[in-house]
Design a protein around this nucleic acid. Sequence first.
RNA 1: GCUAGGGUGGCUGAGCGGUUUAGGCGACGGGCUGCAGACCCGUUUCACUGGGGUUCGAAUCCCUACCCUAGCUCCA
Length: 391
Amino acid sequence: MQVFNTKSGNKEELITIEPGTVKAYICGPTVYDYCHVGHARTYINFDVFRRYLEALGYSFVHVQNFTDIDDKITQRASAQGELPRKVADFFIGEYFKDMDKLNVKRATVYTRVSEFVPKIAEATARLLEEGFAYRSGRAIYFDVQKVGGFGELVSEIEDMVTDKIETGIKKGPFDFTLWMEGKNGEETWDTPMGRGRPGWHIQCVVMSTDSLGPEFDVHWGGIDLIYPHHECEAAISKALFGKPFVRYWIHNNFVLMNGDKMSKSSGQPVYIRNVLKRFSGSVLRTFLLSRHYREKIEYSDDGLESAEKSLQMLKSGAKIAMRNRGTRQMSAYVKDYADMFFGSLDDDLSTGEALAIAERLAWEMTKERNKDFTGAWRIFEAVEGILGIRL
RNA sequence: GCUAGGGUGGCUGAGCGGUUUAGGCGACGGGCUGCAGACCCGUUUCACUGGGGUUCGAAUCCCUACCCUAGCUCCA
């Protein structure tokens, strides 16, 4: 299939390192709150990516983390008078409840930062020894210049607005924290480097490569993670292994609300569980898949309602189609639809197009009496199995 | 600056090589109604930023110019 690689800025044919196997890592949530619709979009699109490749016959290794050590978790914990660990565990549980309702397949491996601290400390110590990192103030920083700067995903980084970047403690403005001494109330670990906790970027490098090896096929995440998170990951990996790291970087776009990104920093997010009070998981899934993953999508009641209508149409079509379920052959008319449907998915996961094609077929089936719809059930089966929309 | 995505009729917004040029809103006419509203029917019959190019044919592909939006160390 063709996928858009952020690294090259182009659509490329997906060729895996090991034929027949896709090794993929996706940045999981920082578990300080319930998941919102933006999270849903990321994990649903990745889920369809996985399901499609599995349908093509690939074995798909899906590794996902939970960032359970973070300032926001500490903040929430102290506000509620609880231990950070308890807060993280709670929201991990809630994450699974939400994702199960959205029919998102479970990952092959889930990792938690808190379980990887010794390995992260070990990697940090190695970077320190090899001169890729330095100690300054109360933290250990990664020296971006030592690996020849950034450039995996962001070019001409010097052109970026650097006004708000603090310097002084750090050698270079783009250097970032690998390890820090803990502050009051934070969870810390004893290591040969002293007592402290890991920084954000190195976590994902250690966790992904631990399961998938130093080189793997796909690294997925929200578009907001391109810089700094993924760029920093690439720099760390380069220093740690001296290998290419990830072949395909894939990023999905945001869910907007009133034109702005839905997130904690810009207004209230819409939690998945709140949407599910009014619409089914399949409706939300249909809504989020109705637009291509690299396009922004505007969240609105109108959008959900229209997704509900689409789903209704798909269900009508599926009902008619399933009457001759099991029939191997496919009429020429249906074959055209099947080609278009699977062709859309093959072209950079165009779920919106695929959905529109299935919907049109459903519509035709409810209206046209004299056409041969033999084999149409296979398309609706794919809507369920690949798009993950229950009909 | 860099990266991504855009510039379509009064507005919104699909279409992304050729066909019935969506749909919605609004407007206009009619129906229904004691009058409105809602609802129903009809009309709104050739819009695609400028300039090149490819093609038998371009809103749709390529180049170029201009303009707009978003992001750029909290973030999926």
